[in-house]
Write a protein that binds this DNA or RNA. Structure first.
Lengths: 129, 129
DNA sequence: CTGAGATTGACAATCGTTCTCAATAACGCC
DNA sequence: GGCGTTATTGAGAACGATTGTCAATCTCAG
């Protein structure tokens, strides 16, 4: 049975109100700072649930999992700034079909793919020049 | 100054003689079993060096870094079996240019990309049916 | 309202990885 | 071949992210 608790809701909202990807730790710190006495373990569980339910994207970078709210059901990829963490959602049917084709070509089934592009966004490019 | 030690060579060979991706831990265990008294820390360092020098590919999955030998200088992606770990190297100029274009389109510079396709290989598909 | 059982949270435990630092070994030089 | 400099090693400690534990708590169907 799935129960709705204010903690889970708090995590969902905190995630929704965040630009770019956040780590579970960061999100937890933010919640505490905002006055929510949420346990760290709970944040991890809530995030895993959200990602599982398709309500959040997750990617791993640098040894930690990063999460980001996303519209349920839509499949897309990301363009992520290495410096400031800003993200742009990108969709690319060409890549989708390519992944499916290349998998099929080698006899692979149930293909899933990880496609993310990292770089420096326009602002950070200037700053770092 | 870069020194050549038998340990680094052992890691390079162990990696070269392995099919698919391996974790640092697994590789270390294999070396010990083969009689090489190599330290775990050294394996980590050697792998990081190899990846840095472009002699190995690395990807992170499930919270750990996986490595695989690859021909220096060539850029390619992977088709990885979720079950048996077999990998197929794939090159896709279409994806390369797409990544570069989409990055440029949004003002991003110094684009790097992560493109990997997971699935079940032909053999495992049959086995799991 | 009430009881069953899902959920929470403080803390310990785990796991991969990196750090520390004394001991060792590689390599340029004579 | 010796020698000294100095990168490299390795055992174990330290570390950080994550997951497990388990009693207390809260949700929700009835």
């Amino acid at each position: 049975m799935r129960r709705n608790t204010w903690q889970r809701e708090a995590v969902r909202e905190a995630l929704g109100g965040t630009e770019g990807f956040v780590s579970a730790q960061t999100l937890h710190a933010g919640l505490r700072e905002a006055g929510s006495e949420v346990g760290l373990a709970t944040v991890y569980r809530a995030l895993a649930d959200l990602a599982d339910a398709g309500e959040a994207d997750s990617l791993q970078s640098d040894g930690e999992n990063l999460y980001r709210a996303c519209t349920p059901g839509s499949h897309h990829h990301h363009l992520i700034c290495r410096h400031c963490g800003a993200t742009v959602e990108i969709t690319a049917d060409a890549v989708e079909t390519w992944a499916r084709d290349v998998a099929a070509e080698h006899g692979f089934t149930a293909p899933q793919h990880v496609v993310d592009v990292f770089g420096y966004c326009a602002a950070c490019s200037r700053e770092l020049a």
